[in-house]
Every structure is written in structure tokens, then in C-alpha cells.
Nucleic acid binder design. Structure first.
Lengths: 109, 109
DNA sequence: AAAACAATATATCTGACGATATATTGTTGG
DNA sequence: CCAACAATATATCGTCAGATATATTGTTTT
């Protein structure tokens, strides 16, 4: 468990970076927050988050292509849910750090 | 501990997103990996990572301005170290997910 | 303490990528 | 076949990364 080779590090960093690039977008992050609770239809997300539908669809498309979410069609509606454990793990870390309990204002920075 | 208001969510997402944008860059990620072990001088980082000095200095500048690293001058050399617990927490999550022990190839995706 | 040298930082420019908005097309249910 | 919902295509625009040149800061030697 010592320092990895530069190549190994680069390979891991490249993969991690690909995930981070998808997460580093406020709309997508908020979408994933909601989806982390439970699955949602596009219409629900649109209403809950106030994102206009085409924008929403594009960002959902990014999440789909990158494998962070999966879809399920139920008649007219399409339900989205989180599909990536990696993404979920990062989301949980972020939640603990940035959405922590507002009663506890310990500034651990 | 139920669903936050949209405003709260947006505020948290905005802050988290700011961190993610800084992390979502392969060179910066690799830099932070090395700095997570111990502090390093610019010259050490340059040699260890094969990044040309001006590029390195620019990325270190980003990390500094965003408060992810801190510096200490020792004569001719400037030592960099990680300064943000938030960044460190995300780095640890990423390490566990993407740099896991190569002997254990469990694909938990 | 001044000159020469080494380490680090900054400025400027160019090219490429990513985001947004608008328009259009596809699909489902009645 | 019409209305509502969702996805996609396209054009425009801004932002960011990388390269080169240059500036700044500190150290060492005399």
C-alpha cells in the first residue's frame, strides 16, 4: 500500500475525473440529490426543481449516457433512478459535508 | 431529516459544485493525490508528475485560490499541502472507489 | 550588499469543449 | 388522429485548458 506508479495514478485519476465532470454541474447535482431519495419521473423533477423540460432532458441524457442513472418506462411516464454506486458514494460524502444538519454549524473547514 | 427546500438544496449544491469543479481536472486530481500523502515542493511535484512548471503553477494557483491547499515557504522552496477537509473527504471516497487494491477486482458498479 | 542564478508565479493568446436556448421530432394515451 | 410528454438536433456563446514568454522572489557567493 505505497505510492502507486504514475501510470496507475493517471488511469485512476482519469476514471475518477470522468465521474467528477458529470457531477460538477449544479442542475445535475440537484437532480441526483432528488434521485438519491427515490426514483422520479421527468415531470416530477421538472416541477420540483424548476428546470425547464428541454434543459432537464439534456442533463438527464448526460447522466444516462455516463451510466449514472437508469430509466424505466411506465406508460406515458419515464422513471429515473440512480444506477452508479460510485456516484452514490460521492453524493453521500457531499451530503454529509454540505447538507449537514443546519442545527450544527461546526465549521470544520 | 426530510426533503430540504429547493433553496437550501440549491445553496448546498452550489457550494458542493464549486468544489467538484476544482476537482474535475485530471492534473489537479493527481496533484491532490500526492499531497494527500504528505506535503511537497513545486519541484518535487513537477518531477514526480511530469507536468511542465508553468502549467503546474497555474493548477496549484487554482487550488490555492479555492482554498484546497496551503503553502509554506522554506527558503527557496515552497511546500504545498492540503488545507480543505471537504476536498480530503471527497478524495478519500474517490480513492476507495477508483484506487482500490488491485488484488481485489470486485466490480461493485 | 550586489550580481548571478534558481524556483515559482503571472500574463497573454489560441483552440476546444460545454452550456443554454430554441426549434423539431418522436411516442404514448385518449 | 390529436394533445401532452419526452427526447433530440442545431446554433450560439462563454469558459477553460495549454503554450510561451516574462516577471518576481529568494539564495548564494564574493
Amino acid at each position: 500500500m505505497d505510492t502507486p506508479t504514475l501510470d496507475d495514478l493517471r488511469v485512476s485519476a482519469s476514471r475518477a475525473c470522468a465521474l467528477l465532470r458529470v457531477l460538477a454541474h449544479e442542475d445535475r447535482l440537484v437532480l441526483l440529490c432528488r434521485l438519491a431519495e427515490r426514483e422520479h419521473t421527468v415531470g416530477e423533477l421538472e416541477q420540483a426543481l424548476g428546470i425547464v423540460q428541454p434543459t432537464l432532458s439534456q442533463q438527464l441524457g448526460v447522466l444516462r449516457r455516463e451510466g449514472l442513472v437508469d430509466t424505466r418506462r411506465d406508460g406515458k411516464y419515464i422513471h429515473y433512478r440512480i444506477a452508479s454506486d460510485d456516484a452514490l458514494a460521492v453524493m453521500q460524502t457531499l451530503h454529509a459535508r454540505f447538507c449537514a444538519d443546519t442545527t450544527n454549524h461546526g465549521d470544520t473547514r
